[in-house]
């Protein structure tokens, strides 16, 4: 850290040029809410910090016909309070309200949260449930990847050292689509012991479930989908009985690991309970 250098980038091109030149010696700094403590504890020792926080092109919330596009530098607090988000994807405003404290939400960014890849992060399970896509840019071009494929291991993602996460694209909820995020933590400001992002789409005529995603965070190295539990619900009318069965399946298919917030045994219990709660709330019929 002693000879760490610092560059304040003004544009995306400047960021990608720097990344190309310095490779994995460089580290991007967005809000600093996760990186600064790592620097302080010498857990990260980059030779160069590329401060992207003033790159205006990475700060936006835009609605297109079928999606909301969110710039990677959009802060947690902006997502929590933005009228477009509240109207179209209230799950995100709800999720942000439960994330850390207001001071951290004021500076922490959506992109920084994803790239930090804390297995207990709240953003990832919510975005996975929504089927969000990430746009990664490097000096040689751009690529798109689903949030589901982005996480590789504890604090590890598929992003290359020469890439910057630029944009998050989220499909708007279809009519009768409903998405929620629920979290359990010791106190409001603590990281999740478990977090569940849920998306459910029911058929207008039959009330059966056409599409479902159950995404669970804080139970392993990366957020995962409870696919066996989804299979219980898909194609059926959601009832107390199917919900109970889905909870049991999720409990069987996920092997949680212990962390500072809770033991594996405890998390195992929570998986069943929280999958059930999530399904109950998400299928209760309120639009969005």
């Amino acid at each position: 850290m002693k000879d760490m250098r610092y560059i304040r980038a003004a544009s995306v091109t400047e960021v990608t040029d720097c990344l190309k030149k310095y490779g994995d010696k460089a580290k991007i700094l967005a809000g600093g809410q996760s990186l600064v403590p790592l620097l302080r504890q010498r857990l990260a020792r980059p030779g160069l910090l590329i401060d992207i926080s003033r790159v205006a092109d990475l700060k936006f919330i835009r609605k297109t016909k079928n999606t909301l596009k969110i710039g990677a530098l959009t802060t947690h607090r902006q997502l929590e309070t933005d009228p477009l988000i509240r109207e179209h994807l209230p799950i995100l405003a709800d999720m942000e309200k439960q994330l850390a404290s207001v001071q951290i939400r004021n500076l922490g960014t959506l992109g920084g949260n994803l790239c930090h890849a804390d297995p207990a992060g709240d953003v990832a399970p919510a975005l996975m449930a929504l089927g969000a896509k990430l746009k990664l840019i490097s000096a040689t071009g751009a690529r798109t990847m689903s949030v589901e494929n982005f996480f590789k291991d504890f604090f590890e993602t598929a992003i290359r050292p020469d890439e910057v996460l630029a944009e998050i694209d989220i499909p708007l909820l279809p009519d009768l689509g409903h998405a929620i995020y629920i979290k359990h933590s010791s106190r409001g400001v603590d990281t999740a012991i478990i977090g569940v992002g849920t998306f459910i789409l029911k058929d207008h005529d039959t009330d059966t479930c056409k599409e479902i995603r159950l995404c669970v965070g804080a139970v392993g190295p990366v957020p995962i989908r409870a696919k066996n539990a989804e299979a219980v619900i898909r194609g059926k009318v959601v009832t107390g009985k199917t919900i109970a069965e889905a909870g049991k399946k999720a409990r069987e298919e996920i092997s949680p690991v212990s962390d500072l917030q809770g033991s594996a045994e405890y998390k195992k219990e929570l998986i069943e309970v929280f999958i059930q709660r999530a399904l109950k709330a998400a299928s209760s019929g309120r639009r969005k």
Binding site: L29, G32, V36, Q103, I104, N106
Partner: peptide, 9 residues
Amino acid sequence: MAIKSCLVL
């Protein structure tokens, strides 16, 4: 804006 000065370079 309220911020935590230990988390900001």
